[in-house]
Design a protein around this nucleic acid. Structure first.
Lengths: 322, 322
DNA sequence: TATCGGCGTGCAAGCGCTTGCGTCAAGCGC
DNA sequence: GCGCTTGACGCAAGCGCTTGCACGCCGATA
């Protein structure tokens, strides 16, 4: 009997034990479709993300899933696909199909129409990684973290600093790379430093593309003495490119990233650490709380910390004087 | 009306159009719980994997999801958790809950009991990455790929070859690392080459741990002239370790991996390419086909190819004579 | 013109749970 | 010892779909 299995009151211990034992013996488990129909709860949460190929997404996903798993929720994946052409399908076919009790979206922007649909469903929705107007959100201070990273380089004495940003493919939230870039420019401006156009390059948030971009950047005659990459993966790409060009990090070029990627330590990368796993857990918890009616907590801004490893140092003396 | 929306016959075009238009206007979408209850089909597939942090798993996952998405199936994630302690829960609470129409398992072994449960559910089940007795399976020839990689090194003239394998944490399928190791040993044996015990090291299928292991391996006075790593990630770890030790690849040490990881090209890594994305798609298709009653195709063995990049070469002359 | 076959349509019976509510037995106070 | 409260238990009414089937309308055939 349903009440016994689910530990509801008004069931005598003896009956409960009997029911439990019998269920166990028969291998009985309630069908989720039926209980979903009856209760309106699916015990599943949707996670919408652009792909599962990038460290940030998968790490957040691990966090979300860990938190959900712990309370018996399943996570169902709404992968928008590398080209993002499945956006519509995801929205119409799945999210709205009431397959989930709520949705957590990673780094993506919603159209007003999509927001309206989400709202009308009464689905708790929280966004990780880039604020979306009107939705609750957990993430770091994108602008501030970029400014802090840049200031670290400036403090070391660098004047010639390039920025490797991400371009905003896949219908991602374009605010993230844009904010980081603004943070960089603000710090540079405040220090009275100039940024030549080609020093605002793009590395698509990937090691390989970061490397390609850095290869171009570092081969210029008048190359920068430091690079602020908007992600650790791109920063690692910069380090690899530097090595290939025979440059030494940090002697010839300093590199700083954002993330504290699992490879950051191997590459001795100085970085602004964020905690995607924790952000995932937090987002899941917020969604769960809202479902439980615990009046949705407000958006959360997670702190970041500068982790100094070996990839940043003062620029060479000759560069400092330039 | 249900028949109209789902394109069943016996509905006049006029009625269908009207129904469709009205549904669209009202934003109506059938509830998956209700139709699941009524039909017994959930239009969702479960993917059981040890984690979403490693390249192989996420790449297979992308493939699976792409294939499923294309036919309107959702994928629901059964992450066993890094410690694998959620295995039971996953099995009991979710898979058996009839939330999915079938399951695809990545690289994990099943206990006889688990297999029995899966079978009794009538769930099509296919395994990717390591054969499991009694279940259909898509994967490469683990033994053969390792032997081929090793033979490539031997052919180049190497005699002193170490193997970096994966230890089998997480209740993964232990057969995979074991088969690769056997393939290595077989090739070595066939060439009459000796493998000292410490040259059978473990790198946990990760860059960082591969690097750590290689750091030990390459600092020995009598170090190997080549390393066969059971995955590209570990192979990249070897390359990083070599660089740190001032060794040049492939001059001082040759490295070969398995996978054709997205970073293989950046590191000029010679590797035995497999195609996890394709394997994922294939596994999804097989599951779908079986659901459709198209008499389960047999297991599939996917081919691998040697991709020669710059990380392997003949050993230095002095080593060759030794 | 009367009858028949067929296509479209709508009714209603489930699918397997949850849950409000009525029933019943036991325990209590008077 | 009787009536009442309280706690367990079971009945049955849905939840929102799918689908077999009966029905009604049409044009076609005799």
């Amino acid at each position: 009997m349903s009440r016994a299995l689910r530990g509801l009151p008004n069931v005598s211990p003896a009956t409960r034990d009997l029911v439990m034992a019998t269920a166990e013996r028969l291998g009985y488990v309630a069908s989720s479709a039926a209980s979903g129909l009856a209760t309106g709860r699916t015990l599943a949460m949707g996670v919408v993300l652009p792909n599962v190929s990038r460290w940030f997404y998968t790490t957040v996903l691990e966090g979300i899933d860990a938190e959900l798993r712990a309370v018996g929720y399943d996570t169902i994946l709404f992968n928008l696909g590398l080209k993002g052409q499945d956006r519509d399908r995801v929205f119409h076919r799945s999210i709205l199909r009431k397959r989930t009790d709520g949705v957590i979206a990673l780094c993506l922007d919603f159209t007003p129409e999509e927001r309206r649909q989400l709202a009308s469903l009464g689905h708790p929705t929280v966004v990780v990684g880039g604020p979306v107007p009107g939705l609750r959100h957990v993430g770091i201070d994108e602008f501030g973290v970029a400014r802090a990273a840049t200031e670290h380089l400036i403090r070391l004495g660098h004047r010639r600093i390039a920025h490797l940003g991400g371009d905003d493919e896949h219908g991602l939230n374009k605010r993230v790379p844009a904010s980081r870039r603004r943070g960089f420019l603000r710090a540079m401006g405040a220090a009275g430093l100039d940024v030549p156009e080609p020093w605002l390059a793009s590395g698509g948030f990937q090691i390989t593309r970061g490397r390609d971009a850095a290869l171009r950047l570092l081969q210029e005659p008048d190359r920068p003495t430091a690079v602020f990459a908007a992600s650790d993966e791109m920063a690692i790409g910069v380090i690899l490119a530097a090595r290939e060009l025979g440059l030494e990090v940090p002697r010839d070029v300093s590199v700083i990233g954002i993330d504290d990627h699992e490879l950051a330590e191997v590459f001795a990368l100085t970085t602004m650490a964020q905690d995607p796993y924790g952000q995932g857990r937090l987002a899941a918890r917020m969604t769960l709380d809202e479902l439980a009616g615990a009046g949705g907590r407000a958006s959360v801004r997670v702190p970041t910390t500068l982790i100094e490893r070996g990839s940043t140092a003062a620029p060479p003396a000759d560069a400092r004087e330039a």
